[in-house]
Computed example of a mutant assay.
Amino acid sequence: MLLPRIMVMGVGNILLSDEGLGVRFLDQLAKKSLPESVELLEGGTAGLDLIHLIREVDFLIIVDALNANAEPGTLFRLQPGDLHALSEHREVSFHEIGIIEVLAIANLLDKSPKTLIFGVQPKSLEWGVDISPEIEAQFPRLTELILEEIDTIQLKGTFTSVLSA
């Protein structure tokens, strides 16, 4: 049986403390034993350059800082459409070209994988390379949630239906 290709992408600017949480999180996830069909990618702040990187995967799981005006460390589990609806009310991404735009363009090119986004409300966006303790404390739970998604994708070919972030 051919397993679906899964990419876990961490995005963000590692020079702006919690803005880089997606990239820093991948360091933790890389310590886990992952199936061969799972690829980890540091998307950084690459913006549109990410389109060619995601077109070859079946499932994309994104980890990023998310501005939802919530308590620092709050986890969100969203589909791209949820993120688009949220962005109508506020700027949710801290990047010049956010993941919404990247996914929209990939979709126009018929290259968009099934996508799930795990967002974390940052505490600090100040210059610095350290992640706030409140944010780093969420990494074990985030790891657990993403490993559950990977298992479900491999078993059922879809994301979990439970929205329990």
Rank of each mutant, 00 (worst) to 15 (best):
G47M: 05
I54P: 00
A30N: 15
V57I: 08
S37V: 02
E39H: 05
K123I: 07
H89W: 01
N67V: 06
K31T: 12
H52K: 14
I131Y: 09
V92Y: 04
M1W: 03
E134F: 06
L21I: 08
M7E: 01
Q121D: 03
D49T: 08
V102P: 12
E56H: 15
L53W: 13
H89Y: 13
P122Q: 05
L163D: 07
I97M: 11
G47P: 07
L103G: 04
A85M: 12
I14L: 05
S17D: 00
N13W: 00
A106V: 04
P80G: 07
L50N: 01
Q28P: 00
L145C: 14
E88N: 13
G98R: 13
G43W: 09
W127K: 13
A68M: 15
K31Q: 15
E136D: 09
A30E: 15
M7K: 02
I146C: 03
L109S: 07
V120M: 12
D49G: 10
E88Y: 09
V162Y: 04
G12T: 04
L142P: 04
I6S: 00
P80T: 11
F139C: 10
L145P: 00
A68Y: 09
S17A: 12
R55Y: 10
G81M: 05
A165C: 15
N69K: 13
R24F: 02
H89P: 00
I14C: 05
K156Q: 06
S37R: 00
D130N: 15
A106S: 04
G43S: 03
E144W: 05
L78D: 01
V11M: 15
L40E: 01
F139Y: 15
F94P: 00
A106P: 07
G128F: 06
V129G: 12
I99R: 04
T74V: 04
H89L: 07
S87R: 12
V8Q: 02
E144Q: 12
A104P: 01
H84E: 14
D58H: 14
I6Y: 00
R141P: 03
L125M: 15
E71G: 08
G157C: 08
T160K: 14
P80E: 08
E136W: 12
E42A: 09
E101N: 10
G73C: 13
H89S: 12
L75E: 12
A65C: 14
I150G: 01
L48H: 03
V38Q: 01
G73H: 02
F25G: 10
Q154L: 15
G119R: 04
Q121G: 06
D110N: 13
T45Q: 05
L50V: 02
L50A: 03
G128P: 11
A85D: 09
E126K: 15
L2M: 10
D110S: 14
T45W: 02
R90K: 11
V8P: 00
L86Y: 11
I62M: 13
P72H: 11
G43R: 00
S33P: 02
E56L: 06
E91P: 01
F76K: 05
A65Y: 06
A68V: 10
G20S: 09
G20R: 02
I54M: 08
